[in-house]
Design a protein around this nucleic acid. Sequence first.
DNA 1: GATGAATGAGGCTTCATTCAT
DNA 2: TATGAATGAAGCCTCATTCAT
Lengths: 207, 207, 207, 207
Amino acid sequence: MVKHIVSSVKDEKLIEQRREELQKGAVSLFKQKGFHRATTREIARAAGFSIGTLYEYIRKKEDVLFLVCDAIYDEVKARMEAVIDTQETSEEALHQAVKSYFQLMDDMQDEVLVLYQELKALPKDAQEYVLDKEKEMVTLLEKVIQNSYPALSEQELSIITNNIFIQGQMWGFRRWILQKEFTLKQYTDLQFDLLKSQLGQRAKNHR
Amino acid sequence: MVKHIVSSVKDEKLIEQRREELQKGAVSLFKQKGFHRATTREIARAAGFSIGTLYEYIRKKEDVLFLVCDAIYDEVKARMEAVIDTQETSEEALHQAVKSYFQLMDDMQDEVLVLYQELKALPKDAQEYVLDKEKEMVTLLEKVIQNSYPALSEQELSIITNNIFIQGQMWGFRRWILQKEFTLKQYTDLQFDLLKSQLGQRAKNHR
Amino acid sequence: MVKHIVSSVKDEKLIEQRREELQKGAVSLFKQKGFHRATTREIARAAGFSIGTLYEYIRKKEDVLFLVCDAIYDEVKARMEAVIDTQETSEEALHQAVKSYFQLMDDMQDEVLVLYQELKALPKDAQEYVLDKEKEMVTLLEKVIQNSYPALSEQELSIITNNIFIQGQMWGFRRWILQKEFTLKQYTDLQFDLLKSQLGQRAKNHR
Amino acid sequence: MVKHIVSSVKDEKLIEQRREELQKGAVSLFKQKGFHRATTREIARAAGFSIGTLYEYIRKKEDVLFLVCDAIYDEVKARMEAVIDTQETSEEALHQAVKSYFQLMDDMQDEVLVLYQELKALPKDAQEYVLDKEKEMVTLLEKVIQNSYPALSEQELSIITNNIFIQGQMWGFRRWILQKEFTLKQYTDLQFDLLKSQLGQRAKNHR
DNA sequence: GATGAATGAGGCTTCATTCAT
DNA sequence: TATGAATGAAGCCTCATTCAT
């Protein structure tokens, strides 16, 4: 459970449950109107409770945003961990990972969009807290790449991972252009091909 | 001049001038607080005139955002055109273009950030108008790449261009991670190296 | 027991007990923040029970104020009666009475302050009920003065008594000025001296 | 003009004027319902402007209370100064002063009541600021008394002045009892008589 | 009897926009 | 054309009170 946000309700189980309802509702609301345009009353209604009850579980409207961002990252991360094997060392494992990651980004485009748009509306400390979670996700990808191509220099590994990571996010974020030109499969295959060119090259160089 | 935004002032010269003051002020304001948190009064003050005068040159607060986004894209585009040679066909020309583009994204990180954050706050039609300008920028990069590597398939060209375009924007947008690990030069060199791996490979394949 | 406030609890003993806890907590709370700024939740907590339980013993927040004012007057009155002898007729008895009364006002400054500040927040009928208790206290003082100086006219007696009564209350209420200039003993002695001048004079006149 | 409260309006004259309207309306409102029960909208309406305009001249609801308290003290003080001659040394001058002061307290009972009830709702620093004004009023009375009875010790002078000051305020504050028993004239005459007894006595003692 | 989660009316305050000067 | 005072809709949040457990 998120320790950072104070609730006036005592029952921890209930807090967990209500906050989940809250996130669900809020994400779908923020997708439509964004955080700033959503009113607290709308947020409450979207979550299925009254404005009074909303404020039993948060202190400020901002807290909802934090909850949402936090939950999105948690879900993304959980699903990445479920789907990505950090032990395997084959090129095929990397292929799998990239496909899974891109699929995940496709599934969660709206959530990722919310993240991109609203993260900066959080107070600095909350931003950092949330971005730390992002780093863990990047690290996950990084491991997989390193397993398959252990010869990469630190910087090469880092920049390649970042590129992949970003390309996944952009699939949803720049859907207005990318999804017009490519299907997800095409996008995935093309990017993986390009990735292999880079990695193949690097592997040689470092041998 | 932007035709989309109505002003009650008649003198076109004046409109041009005032709107430039307006953009300048607004960008620096939006950098700090974002569009939603900036009040119209603050916008007016940042531009150096009164709230009443502000409303002589715009109709709604949203108009300011449009003006700003539009101006940013115009500036980015102008500077790209100034710096990128779409005639040259050498690999070196591409290298120059990438370096220049990344340098530009470094110069204008704050503006790009504003764009990323606030574009979605515009009404749909304004969004499209502005994104069309972005497409032109992408097209510019695309031409340079194609000049140097004419053998690329349409999709390869498109995705590679998009990747480069995005990597430039992310340099500023994800500065909290990228600029901790890399200097701009390192980032540029590494990305260009990776790009060459891809292009070299492709070039061969298609020959 | 106070008949005016309805409780949903049947057990009279319990009511008595809970209400005492309630008063104790509320007075100390009202001292700090005043009635209006104190929330019912804070009142409940200060009394040591839950918000639900609070509402078993009162009907409205206002009831708490009534309970508190009522209790304060009861305590003041009880302590005055314990300490003031209405039988004695000597000047010394009056001296004793004044000293005791001032001492009491010193002891209960905070309570008196609450009374002064919040009494007007009660509904009219409750105000009257409570002020009747105050009158009894004034009457007590009046008796003592009359015992010692039976020659005073009705109006003289009344005004002198009121003055003493007020001077006692003001010791606490205007502590920010009086308690900077005087110790309680000095204040008491000075006021008693002044009182004697008046009474001595009056006594002569009426003989 | 009160420097302590910020206004977003620039025209100082206007501020002065609007704030006066504000005080007038607010006092009469606070008389009826007290500060806490009066809503900001009621305050605005009582002053004759909209809620938006109200907030052009104050920052917080509390500011209204400050404005009101400050204005009351200013008026009381101005009227005392207009009516009390601090040069004269005759007993008659003192008589005049007391009569005028009591008359003033009669005229301004409601205002004084507001002061008594709500002063504690102000932030500490505002309280001090306002109470300093009260001290000046006490000082005024003190001078008159000292002029007529220069022989009084410092403490005697101080306590006697305080008593008079308080008796004036109480005439309005405890009207429910005092104004039932006395007319203003009676109250004034009786209190002045008592005062003379004290002063006469003291004068002798110190001669 | 005791608890505390749920409720929603209503309070305070902000701020985009208008309009008289 | 420029100004800035005026407006009020609408947002955020609190808190007295209720009621199911």
